[in-house]
Simulated assay, not measured.
Amino acid sequence: MNNAQFAPWEDPAAKPLIEFKGVTKNYGTFTAIDNIDLKIYPREFFALLGPSGCGKTTLMRMLGGFETVTKGSITIDGEDMAGIPPNKRAVNMMFQSYALFPHLSVADNLAFGLKRSDMPKSEIQGRVEEMLRLVKLQKFAGRKPHQLSGGQKQRVALARALAKAPKLLLLDEPLGALDKKLRQETQFELMDIQEKTGTTFVIVTHDQEEAMTVASRIAVMDDGKLVQVDTPDRIYEAPNSVYVADFIGDVNIIEGGVSNVSGEAAELSWSEGKPAIKGVSGERIQKGSSGAFAIRPEKIAISRDKPVDVHNCVQGVVEDIAYLGNMSTYYVRLDNGSLIKAQTANSRRIARRGLTWEDSVWLSWTDTAGIILPT
């Protein structure tokens, strides 16, 4: 979100557009959604993120009216959705398959739903042109879907879903069919369109990078439950569990015992004869319990010589190097057998970098670079 002030979830007086209260969904004895409470606010770009089978699509389908709630309630703009069919909700859904009519032109695809709505016929042409401008497809109005690229079809489907000005747009893995580069470009287009229209977007994705890029907030799901609901930076920097730390981005996890907790700092004993690791204390962490230290590879410095004045410092051997163009990832095997990943930006030419396979190196990080979480 471009607007740094946009954080209605922090305002107790803000009224949510969507509210899930104690929502459960059972299929026979299987619980797909387990007692979920969640508020989503107007103009949010909200992401439901999790692995296959975690319940994110079921949650979205209940919101759209395609699945019924077993227990609890869903309200949209203060109205209880129980018994209200999909076509009577101020909601539209964009599917992964795009579901365009192959025999109709782009313009006619956009006009199709409007002709069946209560919009005056005289306004339909203007609305179609407005939608074509929004998704930058004015020149393609007369083409049929088979004459379009994957990215263009995706934009037609988006324009069609927004044509009736729904309060809420549901997007089910909308960019899944696009190649990586096009997907990244389209993510920014989606954000731009969402901001221009002011429509609330709820996107289902299993792609962490996509959720981190587009969303104002992310709900990380597992086994039908919400594990953490927060802004992308908080989810990345302050995960509330090992599951979230491990699911979002790249991370090193070192297990051990919590030897000390002091306010926002904690220590983890992890290997006999080695100093305890210092880190930020995570939620629910207690002295004497088992814990795990989570640190991102880019927060770890790698050097030939032992750094001075750094508490968190371990020695190992470079076992592998992944060169990714803009950065290199070093896989370093420690004395106790642990494998740690450290990342460095490739700001210099290859010949001047100097670290290679089998080199003995030191890894170090600051006392606030990683977080100690309960296990």
Rank of each mutant, 00 (worst) to 15 (best):
D179V: 02
A219T: 13
A163W: 15
D179R: 04
Q184H: 03
D192T: 11
A219M: 14
Q184V: 00
D207M: 06
T205S: 01
E195I: 02
N240Q: 11
F188S: 07
H206P: 11
D223I: 01
D192K: 15
A238Y: 03
F188N: 10
L169D: 04
T186A: 08
Q187T: 01
V242Q: 14
D207H: 08
E210P: 08
Q187E: 13
A211L: 10
L169N: 01
R183C: 00
I235C: 11
G224S: 13
T231D: 07
E185Y: 05
D192C: 01
D172S: 02
V220E: 09
K181V: 04
A238G: 02
V202M: 04
G198Y: 10
I218R: 01
K196H: 06
E195V: 02
L170F: 10
I235P: 12
V220A: 03
K181Y: 04
T186M: 15
V220S: 05
L170K: 09
V204G: 01
S216Q: 14
E195L: 08
S216V: 11
K181C: 03
A215G: 01
A161V: 10
V242P: 04
V229N: 03
Y236A: 10
V214W: 13
R183K: 07
D223W: 10
A215F: 12
A165D: 10
V227F: 05
E173H: 12
